[in-house]
Design a binder for these strands. Structure first.
Lengths: 192, 192
DNA sequence: TATCAGACTGAGCGCTCAGTCAGGTTAAAA
DNA sequence: TTTTAACCTGACTGAGCGCTCAGTCTGATA
């Protein structure tokens, strides 16, 4: 693994566990076994390192969903919703460090002043919202989903999953035990 | 208003807007028009100031819901759900600074090492989850709500509202326009 | 062998920060 | 009037921060 990649991986872990401000570059250097100067050789400053991590996350999540949707055959729109929700919940677990980063406030603060950051965040959210929309549209066509407002319903489902993932990451209420019930709730919202 | 209260109010605004780490005590002193030393006279350190704010929020939100539930007559469990959700969404807007604080990661980090902080957070979340539970129980008795698992369904509703509020506070997708649809989704989850 | 570019290093600089302290002010009690 | 204690002040401190920079190392090129 290149030193640059090692820096990104260590920084992802530290930023998600301790936050941007609470992670010092000297600590990051020590943990990754790389000299402090090297970090600034690869990244202009601390903020640019953060943005790079966010861009990797963006690429990773979009790629994951593209492959999942591409490989998979869904019987109906409703089934697509169920499978996508399951996959989303699974991803949130397996990419935990990245998702915690997404729930920290820092990214949204950078997004206000940094267009690359803003675009990455938008891409991540739109990727997710769009998939819900596609599934609902398909379900409305094939009759597996009721005649609901597409965009609004997609966002509500998205917000619900988002809330569950937050509860889970923050270790509130063992939200991990709710996964089946969440899918049941989705189905209820979408049936006639 | 006492100086102590002035400090708390200015700190609430700063911590929620800029975050705990990004708010300096000298800035807080300047903004509240109070000498830096005075802040440390009233609060042992920066962290204790944060905890005091969280305790005020806890008291405030519990008080608000107690009064709302106490004053209000609900026709049925289902109506109670609808009204409580509306009130919750309203509160999240009118107590915006406090809610942003609740969505920042900082509080959960302090909670890991500080029991007062942990208890305040638990009290806030349990207050909200319990209300949903009460309403569902009542609805199951009076027949307005289907025979759903009480705790799990309460948490799913809670997570959904939580997600919507987060989207709204982070200015994603104009989530404020979804309020009516959210209540509709709640009703669908709860009807037979 | 000499030259060179790019990767890498870590001591150290300038600065900001949370927290301290010596002392001033106020107001009520003696 | 004097005493006392609570309240308040802001200049100051040392620790820790992000970042720089002069210089080393390595492997390819001439």
């Amino acid at each position: 693994m290149s030193k640059k990649q090692a820096i990104i991986e260590a920084a992802t872990r530290l930023f998600s566990q301790k936050g941007f401000e609470n992670t010092s570059m000297s600590e990051l250097a020590k943990l990754s076994g790389i000299a402090q100067g090297t970090i600034f050789y690869h990244f202009k400053n601390k903020e640019e390192l953060f943005i790079s991590i966010l861009e990797e996350f963006k690429a990773g999540i979009i790629d994951n969903f593209d492959r999942y949707i591409g490989e998979r055959q869904f019987e109906s729109g409703m089934e697509m919703i169920e499978d996508v929700v399951s996959f989303y919940l699974y991803l949130a677990g397996s990419m935990e460090d990245w998702f915690i980063l997404l729930y920290r406030h820092e990214a949204y603060e950078f997004a206000r002043v940094n267009s690359v950051c803003r675009e990455s965040l938008e891409a991540i959210y739109n990727c997710l919202a769009d998939i819900f929309e596609q599934a609902i549209l398909r379900g409305k066509k094939d009759g597996s989903i009721a005649d609901v407002p597409v965009r609004k319903t997609a966002l509500i489902l998205f917000a619900m999953i988002d809330g569950i993932i937050r509860f889970n990451l923050y270790e509130l209420y063992n939200a991990g035990t709710l996964y089946k019930d969440v899918i049941g709730a989705c189905r209820k919202i979408l049936t006639k």
